[in-house]
């Protein structure tokens, strides 16, 4: 990275301006697609945080679902529709739940970690499916959000949501970049390589993994809040393991070197999904599976490694 401490904030402002600019020219369906892609990109970003510690979470759908249900239930029960308030609540609930789960999970690695995270999200899926007071498997509808008192409709609503999503995505991305570059961030990367050494240097691997997991839950919950509001409907499918599988897919496609690549991969996935829904309605998973195998085989470090000078011979930050 560059030495200037202004680099991260400046690139955030630049990216945000470009995104909003694009918002003025694209049609409404594309804006919805971009909103969803960014929201899901946030969830995938959580997986990338954990990937840097050498872990793959197959259950980020858990927090995606929690965030979505928080926004849905709050709107239905208390009438709160303010998107900022809902985001804060969604993140808060996710973080609290993650802090509890982290105690169990931080002792596990590799496939155990992957499968346990998967199981946790499936518990939520099972529980929600059985709870008929909040819609059971049908889920529930979410009313349109308001933005600090502003209650847009139609295209203005779509644009406001897109604007908000760009804003929080860029802020979250910037903060996570700062974390990746930080002392803790580097230690996490070291854990991926050699956990034993990190313990012997006096750092707690468990606490590093727990904090990564909690951060991942926070962005997962945030993505869920936005997705729930954008779609206007939530159901237990948000916590289903194939939903989590798509987030993993995005993380694998992007690799863990570039945060921009995470959102780019998420957009790629949404675009491919739209087209394959249109032209090959019954082979979406086939396309996804083949794509996944190709990426793992040909791009082991993800799209991000194509743009990052990070891993080149002799290259340094």
């Amino acid at each position: 990275m560059t030495n200037s401490r202004l680099f991260v904030p400046l690139s955030c402002v630049l990216i945000f301006s470009v995104l909003v600019g694009i918002g003025f020219i694209i049609p409404q369906w594309a804006m919805f697609l971009a909103t969803m892609a960014l929201a899901k990109g946030l969830v995938a970003l959580g997986i990338v945080i954990l990937m840097r510690a050498g872990l793959v979470s197959f259950g980020q759908g858990l927090y995606f679902c929690i965030g979505a249900y928080v926004s849905g239930l709050m709107a239905n029960w208390t009438g709160i529709t303010d998107i900022v308030l809902l985001s804060i609540l969604g993140v808060l609930v996710s973080v609290i739940l993650a802090a509890i789960c982290a105690r169990l999970l931080s002792g596990y690695r590799g496939i155990f970690f992957a499968m346990l995270t998967l199981s946790l999200s499936m518990i939520l899926y099972g529980a929600l499916s059985k709870m008929s007071i909040i819609g059971g498997t049908d889920g529930l509808n979410v009313s349109a959000p308001t933005f600090l008192g502003y209650a847009p409709e139609g295209r203005a609503l779509g644009f406001s949501l897109y604007f908000y999503t760009c804003l929080v995505s860029v802020i979250a991305g910037g903060l996570i970049r700062v974390y990746f570059n930080s002392e803790r961030g580097l230690t996490t990367l070291a854990i991926r390589d050699n956990e034993l050494r990190v313990e012997y240097l006096g750092s707690s691997v468990k606490s590093a993994i727990s904090s990564g997991y909690i951060m991942a839950a926070a962005v997962g919950g945030l993505g869920g809040v936005i997705a729930g509001l954008a779609i206007g409907h939530v159901d237990p499918e948000y916590a289903y393991w194939t939903t989590s599988g798509e987030f993993v897919f995005v993380a694998i496609l992007s690799g863990f070197f570039s945060i921009g690549a995470v959102f780019a991969s998420s957009i790629v996935l949404e675009v491919v999904r739209s087209f394959s829904n249109l032209y090959f309605p019954n082979t979406w998973q086939l396309v996804l599976g083949v794509f996944l195998l190709i990426v793992i085989l040909l791009l082991p470090n993800g799209l991000g490694s194509l743009f990052s000078k990070r891993r080149r011979k002799g290259g340094s930050e």
Partner: peptide
């Protein structure tokens, strides 16, 4: 106290 913000580099 390793920091979440202070750059490692």
């Amino acid at each position: 106290q390793a920091s979440f913000f202070r750059p490692a580099h």
